[in-house]
């Protein structure tokens, strides 16, 4: 059972990492804690479902959902964050604005879905499991793991190997200095919010498919977990998001597997506190504190 549960944990962790990547990208680059990320994720799942309901193939549903949430995320930046940014030091105001956006999106979904839990039609993905080293693996679990690896790789390539990515990191490190070098921050906001929304939408459709349920409140537990991943991995550290996401998935799964289920959250959060006592900036938090010093 241990091997199977470790694999289950890895898949769950991949989902957390996928969710946290976009959340952390926006925070890491722009210092915006976008609490509407969970709602964007939820919208992604709904858009994917509606696309399939309209008769589109699954790959198209993924594409539409991702582009939709990418644009939604950009729109949220335009409407909710950009005006506040112009007023200067607005980190807290933006946090509140993001809660407002979250509430609007969740309530719209509540109305649109009549509070029902929806699901993708049966048979849209193969469910026949295959066996590997005695583990039972469903095709979707495999896809989730593969997509997470792919997304992390692509994001790392984009950030560290392309000129655009270098500009994003420049803004993350020091927005004003980047501007003086000819970086256009507006383009960077556009890119990071689009990518962040796109990743949220992708995670939303994947999770809607994997766990058979799509409803207006599905983003909340993931947002909470995303938050834990963010703190545990180190604010703004993408490497941290991946490692912490996987760790959280595995710890959570193992505690469900071997301890009374009511204790799961207690175990997860106790471990979080323990890690923070030893490493107050999270597992990979140091780089950020440097960036902060340079920023002052």
């Amino acid at each position: 059972m241990l091997a199977q549960q470790l694999f289950n944990g890895l898949v769950l962790g991949a989902v957390y990492a996928l969710f946290a990547l976009g959340f952390n990208l926006v925070f890491g680059v722009h210092k915006i804690m976008n609490l509407a990320h969970g709602a964007i994720f939820m919208v992604g799942a709904f858009v994917g479902l509606y696309s399939v309901t309209l008769g589109l193939p699954l790959w198209a549903a993924f594409l539409i959902a991702m582009v939709f949430t990418g644009l939604l995320s950009v729109m949220i930046d335009f409407v909710a964050f950009r005006p506040l940014r112009k007023t200067g030091d607005a980190e807290f105001a933006m946090l509140i604005a993001s809660i407002g956006v979250e509430m609007i999106l969740v309530n719209l979904a509540l109305r649109a879905s009549d509070a029902r839990t929806l699901r993708f039609p049966f048979g849209i993905v193969p469910v026949e499991p295959f066996f590997l080293f005695g583990m039972r693996i469903t095709p979707l679990q495999f896809v989730i793991a593969a997509v997470a690896v792919l997304c992390v790789t692509l994001l790392a390539f984009y950030l560290y190997r392309t000129s655009f990515g270098r500009q994003v990191r420049a803004v993350s490190s020091n927005e004003r200095a980047a501007m003086l070098l000819g970086v256009e921050p507006r383009m960077i906001y556009l890119q990071t919010f689009f990518i962040s929304g796109l990743l949220a939408g992708l995670a939303g459709v994947l999770i809607g498919l994997a766990f058979n349920s799509i409803n207006f409140s599905m983003g909340e537990p993931y947002l909470l977990r995303g938050f834990v991943v963010l703190i545990l991995g180190g604010l703004g550290s993408l490497r941290g998001a991946v490692v912490a996401g996987l760790a959280l998935g595995i710890i959570q799964t193992l505690s469900v597997a071997y301890f009374p289920t009511g204790l799961t959250d207690i175990i997860v959060y106790s471990l979080l506190f323990a890690v923070l006592l030893v490493r107050p900036n999270g597992l990979f938090g140091d780089a950020v504190s440097d960036a902060r010093v340079a920023r002052r």
Binding site: R169, S173, N174, R176, A177, L180, D290, A291, A294
Partner: peptide, 11 residues
Amino acid sequence: VPEGRQILSDL
């Protein structure tokens, strides 16, 4: 070349 260098320290 701004005051305090403002190099991109993470890069």
